[in-house]
Design a protein around this nucleic acid. Structure first.
Lengths: 121, 121
DNA sequence: GTACAAGTTAGAGTATACTAGAAGTCAATA
DNA sequence: TATTGACTTCTAGTATACTCTAACTTGTAC
């Protein structure tokens, strides 16, 4: 799969894909002419990158995980630790957001009341 | 309250507070010598800004809300709309995160299994 | 064979959100 | 009186994550 096809399938721009490669998030083999050759396996990998990113993991941290991944099976315990740490962070953030949502709801209700009052003075 | 005291109370650096003022997120009156005078009311306001920011609202969007806020009561319906929109976005993000968390959990379990297998080959 | 679409690299530019430095003012304390 | 600390403005620098341009190479279609 070329970079263009891969870009379409993943929704990540070719610029970003090359950037990710440069940052060592993805390792992509080349054909005899030097063009990047992507495989199906990489699709799952970049989608996982996407999810880590969306949940607040920085590229630098993702790079650490990627580095371990490309080092082979012996790094599994380390990778597990990274994922567990991230899991806890996401859980914590979700708890915080839960409170923020309640807060927002209160504020919305307050606005609705005030607007109702001002409607019929 | 001076900018230094306000910074301590809110946990936001004086640099950032001045930056926020520059970006019109906060409007701060001055004393006769030109120094910023912060009030208790502003504490709640910047803490609300913090929450909006943490839940993914950009400063530009927060500026819109701030602008309306400083325009007075007549802008309440517009502010309500902004908050409702943001509420929906946060809810959506939380749903997505819920799935990502399940995904992460699966991955963590998979790693734990693999590591257990490799322990006793 | 020439146009054109898609690939390549190196490096520059952009957006966002700070963060810090320089140069100066002002009030209180040693 | 001199120094210290906190304030002021203006401007420049940093980190992160892209995003694009320039100059060039390849492969296919007409």
């Amino acid at each position: 799969m070329t970079i263009g096809e891969f870009s379409k399938k993943t929704g990540i721009s070719v610029y970003t894909l090359r950037y990710y490669e440069d940052k060592k998030l993805i390792v992509v083999p080349r054909d005899e002419k030097g063009r990047r050759v992507y495989t199906q396996k990489e699709i799952e990998w970049v989608q996982f990158i996407k999810r880590l990113k969306e949940t607040g993991m920085k590229l630098q941290e993702i790079q650490k995980y990627a580095g371990l991944r490309y080092k082979g099976e012996k790094t599994m315990p380390e990778r597990l630790e990274l994922l567990k740490k991230h899991y806890d962070i996401v859980i914590e953030q979700q708890k915080k957001w839960e409170i923020y949502l309640q807060n927002l709801e209160q504020k919305i209700l307050w606005y609705e009341e005030q607007i109702e009052k001002n409607k019929t003075p």
